[in-house]
Design a protein around this nucleic acid. Structure first.
Lengths: 141, 141
DNA sequence: ATACGTCCTCCAGTGACTAGAGGAGCAAGC
DNA sequence: GCTTGCTCCTCTAGTCACTGGAGGACGTAT
């Protein structure tokens, strides 16, 4: 086991930016690492793997609060994993809803753009649809 | 033409909350309406239709800045609609990208959840995948 | 006259960062 | 030994599009 790496190095290997790493420490996602004599953070393997965990979870769209719970579970491997399972299921549900909503938006945007005759604003379907909700495929929203 | 409606009434018919209406005025999306003797806002038809426009555009995910441009175009109907068209196209591009990313997340979340054996955290696939990026379908992210 | 609902302004908070000011540590070249 | 330039430190404030609360005024019904 070596000494550890600087915050810049940690940023490089994890793909998380330096200020974001400090932010994660500040909000309690990442434990405070030891420091050098000159007061610089020195990250060890456990910090780096935790950082990778956080990054992956953020990429999957988990909120910081959810990640805190997931990390806490990881620290207690004997517990039931059903909280982790239900956090992931909630997230999946959320993702599915977003996809459905975005597909509706996509359809409406495509209809708007397709109807545009590239003339003046007065006859622009984009503006017209925005101004009058009744003119869109009004899918609920 | 009647007098106009209160901010509460405007909120009711537009579906935009009262503080949000005041916020739109503050950031210059909605013109300042006339006031009553008692200093209350009185919205006229033009304000209400502008509010509907804003709401619809926000629902489609246009940013406030983009909406400002779109409203400006609406106020000058003789201009070419190509700026409106390109704002909408950019938005569509963005929506498409989001859908693609969310579909990838959905696949990964489903794989995670499916692999969960409902036992302890130690053998939980959800935690495991989060901890080790190599264990997911690593679709680019 | 009183009670209640709606309205007013102003200021602070949300989430998850991001950017900048102002200063100190550290390695290399001259 | 000194300077240059990079990385690091803390602290504060800004982003986006709202949202919420304090503290007070107006308006209407009883």
């Amino acid at each position: 086991m070596q000494a550890g790496v600087s915050i810049g190095e940690a940023a490089r290997v994890s793909g998380v930016k330096v200020p974001t790493i400090r932010y994660y420490e500040q909000v309690g996602l990442l434990p405070e690492p030891p420091r050098t004599e000159g007061n610089r953070r020195l990250y060890e393997a456990r910090h780096l793997s935790r950082l990778a965990f956080i990054r992956h979870a953020r990429e999957l769209g988990f909120e910081v609060d959810a990640i805190r719970t997931l990390l806490d579970l990881q620290d207690h491997p004997g517990q039931s994993c059903s909280p982790a399972d239900s956090i992931a299921r909630l997230r999946l549900q959320d993702v599915k809803e977003r996809i459905a909503r975005l597909n509706a938006l996509k359809a409406e945007l495509e209809r708007m753009i397709e109807g545009c005759s590239h003339g003046t604003v007065a006859e622009c379907r984009v503006i017209e649809v925005l101004a009058d909700h009744a003119k869109c495929g009004h899918p609920g929203h």
